[in-house]
């Protein structure tokens, strides 16, 4: 019975966030901001930001990530469950691989 429920589901969904979809103009605005952020990122290659360089890049990366995920992937408007999936996966990946790399770093220093 995989198919019979989907109509109702879609109905619910459209109802749930139908009115909150950003308009094309808003999408373009978001894309423009993303473009500016990317330009800022690339500028680290041309200008020396010193110690601030890496933290700056990471912050920009996170902002871009959240913007694309939130707006383009509709996480901001959709059910929270989707976001939970995504951030669980992301969290798992960050924790596990950071731990793994840490083991290499710790051992290399011994």
């Amino acid at each position: 019975m995989s198919t019979s429920g989907t109509q109702a589901a879609d109905a619910v969904e459209h109802e749930a966030h139908g009115g909150h979809h950003p308009t094309p103009t808003e999408y373009v605005r978001i894309a423009l901001i993303l473009a500016v952020l990317t330009a800022l990122e690339v500028s680290t290659y041309y200008f020396d930001f010193g110690r601030a360089g890496i933290p700056l890049l990471i912050i920009l990366m996170v902002i871009k990530f959240i913007m694309v995920a939130g707006s383009f992937m509709h996480l901001r408007y959709d059910t929270k469950l989707f976001g939970r999936f995504m951030y669980t996966g992301l969290g798992f990946a960050i924790v596990l691989y950071t731990a793994t790399l840490l083991i290499f770093v710790v051992d290399a220093n011994q």
């Binding site: 589901a9 619910v12 059910t79 999936f85 798992f92």
Partner: peptide
């Protein structure tokens, strides 16, 4: 016809579940 338990489209839910694993 009964709506899905969480009122979500199966395929969309499936795609999100899959994407979660892609991070790993």
């Amino acid at each position: 016809a009964h709506s899905t338990t969480m009122g979500l489209d199966n395929r969309k839910l499936g795609m999100w579940v899959f994407l979660a694993s892609e991070f790993l």
